[in-house]
Amino acid sequence: MNVRAPQPNNVVSQSLAQIGNCGLFLLTLLAAIPRSFRYVRETIRQLWFVGAMSLTIIMVCGLFVGMVLMLQLYHVLSIFGGTSASGMVVALSVYRELGPVVTALLFAGRAGTAVTAEIGLMRATDQIDAMEMMAVDPIAYVATPRFLAGLIAMPLLCCVFCAMAIFGGHLVGVTWLGVDNGTFWSNMTAQVDVHTDIVNGVLLKSLAFGAVVSLIAVFQGFTTPPTSEGVAYATTRTVVASSIAILALDFVLTAFLM
């Protein structure tokens, strides 16, 4: 009978241990940044996989979020005769909350799981050991580039998401429901502030989410048992942990930034 070494026996202490290990892993990652400068090519390649390859889903989802938001707002606001504010409300809610949060959730599902599964399989097939043997530091070559790529890709994806949402809102509001084009834009431009909404909302939040999702994805990939079962669990954990972290962090950031 194979008796396993005693694990931390409850969910709380297990999660705490995970968070602690994850924090230590972050330090390792950051310490490897100078060494990973020579793998800039790899960072660019990862940017392609986590960023450019996520564009389609981000654009489609952004479009629909903008469209449905406008549809809902139009019907609520028309009760008060406030449909002229609909463009503004779409912009503000997308910039401050929906853009960063939905992009990060999609990013965790699309890119985070891929990174976890990829690294897990690399470990299962000895590729990480092979790199070690070829005197290539796997943290600097595999982990840090993926982390940095996620960090860079998230704000860019979020900007694309927001732009598509505005486009979708415009499509539904102005083209279909007949909100005045000038009112749509002028109310939006009157209320959206570059600093609070775009820098703090879109950029800062998505940067933070990008860091958290990439960290969790890379960490799970590197620490999961290198078996097919382990990789399967790790991808699930990436999505679950990322989603919780995104929403919790969103609350904290909103409280601090707004």
Binding site: R41, Y95, L156, C159, T189, A190, Q191, V194, L203
Partner: peptide
Amino acid sequence: YAVGTGLFIVLGFAALAYLATQTSSVA
């Protein structure tokens, strides 16, 4: 990869520029 990634970055920054200049009070 480099070309595609470059395009992606350009697109992202274009979107950012659009948000910042066309939909905000900067406009």
